[in-house]
Simulated scan of single mutants.
Amino acid sequence: MASKVDVQVEVKSPADKFWGAIRDSTDLFPKVFPSQYKSIEIAEGDGKSPGTIRIVKYAEGVPLVTFSKEKVEVADDANKLVSYSVIDGEMVNLYKTFKPTLQVIPNGDGSLVNWSLEFEKVNAEVPEPDLILETAAETFKDLDEYLLKN
Rank of each mutant, 00 (worst) to 15 (best):
K71S: 05
W19Y: 08
G61I: 07
P34Q: 14
K141S: 04
A43L: 13
Y84T: 05
A136H: 03
L143C: 12
T66G: 03
S35D: 12
V65A: 13
T135E: 14
M91G: 01
S68C: 04
T139K: 05
Q8L: 12
V56T: 03
S116K: 13
K80R: 15
G108I: 04
E73T: 03
L148D: 08
E73K: 06
T135G: 11
T52P: 10
G45F: 11
G45P: 06
V72K: 11
I55P: 04
V65R: 10
K80M: 14
S13C: 07
S83M: 14
F67G: 01
F98C: 13
V126R: 00
P34N: 14
G47I: 09
K57M: 02
L102S: 09
P127E: 11
R54Y: 00
F33T: 02
T97C: 03
K99Y: 07
P50F: 13
V92G: 09
E120V: 11
S49N: 13
D46N: 14
K38H: 14
D88A: 13
L28M: 10
G89P: 01
P106A: 01
L94K: 05
A59Y: 08
L147G: 11
D109Y: 04
A75C: 15
G110S: 04
L133C: 05
P50V: 09
S68F: 12
G89N: 02
D46H: 07
K71M: 06
W19P: 00
P129K: 05
S25V: 02
N107Y: 01
A43Y: 08
I87G: 03
Y58T: 05
D130H: 07
F140W: 15
I87P: 04
Q8D: 12
D46V: 11
E90T: 03
V92K: 15
D76H: 02
E118T: 12
D77Y: 15
Y95E: 00
V92I: 14
E138C: 03
K96L: 13
T66Y: 10
K57A: 04
L131F: 11
D27Q: 11
L148P: 06
K99N: 05
L94P: 00
Y146E: 02
W19N: 00
A136G: 07
W115T: 07
D88G: 09
P14S: 11
N107G: 01
A59N: 07
S111W: 05
L94S: 03
L94H: 01
N107I: 06
V11T: 06
P100N: 03
K80A: 08
K99C: 08
P14F: 00
P100G: 06
K149G: 08
V82Y: 12
Q103V: 13
A2Y: 04
P127C: 08
F119Y: 08
I132H: 04
